[in-house]
Design a protein around this nucleic acid. Structure first.
Lengths: 222, 222
DNA sequence: CAGTATTTTACGGAAATCCATAATCAGAAA
DNA sequence: TTTCTGATTATGGATTTCCGTAAAATACTG
């Protein structure tokens, strides 16, 4: 079982629930952080003191802080922690149920577990901790387990996401092309951007650009 | 102080926090529901048994249920409860920080308090309960208090929202006009819809329709 | 190197939208 | 009734997006 655990979660009411889980599992040594960068600093300090954490339990969405913080989202935190301490176990604990984002957490940050905050998430969190502490298996809440099986035949790349983000920020296609040209982004012709958009609309079954942006916003891609 | 309280909140981990608050305030008689319609039925039953609730603490967003439910969101719940039992006190307890939606809760459902889930929301919830139980004042978390002061000089009406919703669902302007004509919605000419859109873009400082839908989605209007 | 495939770019017409102006209509006031 | 006012509708042209086709550039293969 894990000896030393850190929790990154900003909602105080939610923190109580997680701490209850750890107490039930007889894990005494845990800290929690309400801010992403604070959590990161604690993890780094623990490594330097030769007493690294075994487990990070992290929320994904944090209230945007008044002070400007280096790490704003749980996704970033998890990513950076994985780079800093490759052997730490990570559980994401979130209401996020968009398969695209969950899959990306497993693939990119190589998290070990994903627990969906929900009606019985406390029990699920316990189960996740048990499984992950005793084996190298991953855990994922049953409601979203299908996310990992979906195979995206078509891969959405960085440029696609850039285009979508610009569109949702009110940039016209022509302006996007200008920006791409001036910042040396590879395919920057009118037709290239148009073709990408058309592929995206096809992929997401969107009737038009407005619809496309609406869908991808809902999915949490942008 | 309140004698009988009901909580509508689906996340089990969050429930623990709220219950802690009630215990701290020596409120013994409370129930919680994980589903909106369940909460509504309990409130109605309590009235029929002549033991109505004094206070409803409700979340706003609920996981969409597998079973189809009559009441899907906290907004609806709060609205219906207010109609059913006008004298009940209602506190909304949510991460929602969009001023438009908060204002609408106070104006339409006449909630008595709004507590923003956050770093210190447990203390705020206590304070809210204290204030509301002893007076007819309203309570609103300081971070979002400004929501009530903003005066929208321009009022967005139902038709505006219908248009925005259709747009974000991929309906073209022409199709919207068709739909409006066939369902007898008052201004249903091409130019009327265009004019409304242009006003909306002006109001929300949107560069184009994609931007407009993106902004209004972010604001929680659609 | 020649030949083939894939990607990127170019072009052009159709469709949709954007936007300003003018005509029409309905209700209120004179 | 007439006149005024504001709201709705109509019209037309500029701009943007949409979408297919084709040329050009690049990569890949034997």
């Amino acid at each position: 079982m894990f000896k030393k655990v850190i929790i990154a979660e900003d909602l105080d009411a939610m923190n109580l629930g997680i701490q209850q889980v750890l107490k039930d599992l007889n894990i005494e040594d845990f800290q929690h952080s309400k801010f992403c960068d604070e959590a990161f600093l604690k993890i780094r300090a623990a490594i330097q003191q030769n007493e690294p954490y075994d487990l990070l339990i992290s929320d994904l969405s944090f209230k945007t802080d008044h002070r400007k913080s280096d790490i704003a989202t749980g996704d970033e935190l998890v990513q950076k922690v994985r780079e800093l301490q490759p052997n730490i176990k990570i559980i994401a604990y979130s209401v996020e149920d968009k398969s695209y984002r969950i899959k990306s957490l497993f693939n990119n940050a190589e998290i070990d577990g994903f627990v969906l905050k929900g009606l019985n998430s406390i029990e699920e969190l316990k189960k996740a901790i048990n499984i992950i502490s005793t084996s190298d298996q991953i855990f994922i809440s049953p409601e979203v387990a299908s996310a990992l099986q979906e195979k995206n035949n078509y891969e959405i790349d960085d440029v696609d996401i850039k285009i979508l983000k610009f569109l949702s920020a009110g940039t016209s296609q022509d302006e996007i092309i200008e920006i791409f040209k001036s910042t040396d982004i590879k395919p920057n012709s009118k037709s290239a951007v148009e073709k990408r958009l058309s592929k995206l609309k096809d992929f997401f079954k969107a009737n038009n650009t407005v619809h496309l942006v609406s869908i991808t916003k809902d999915m949490g891609i942008i």
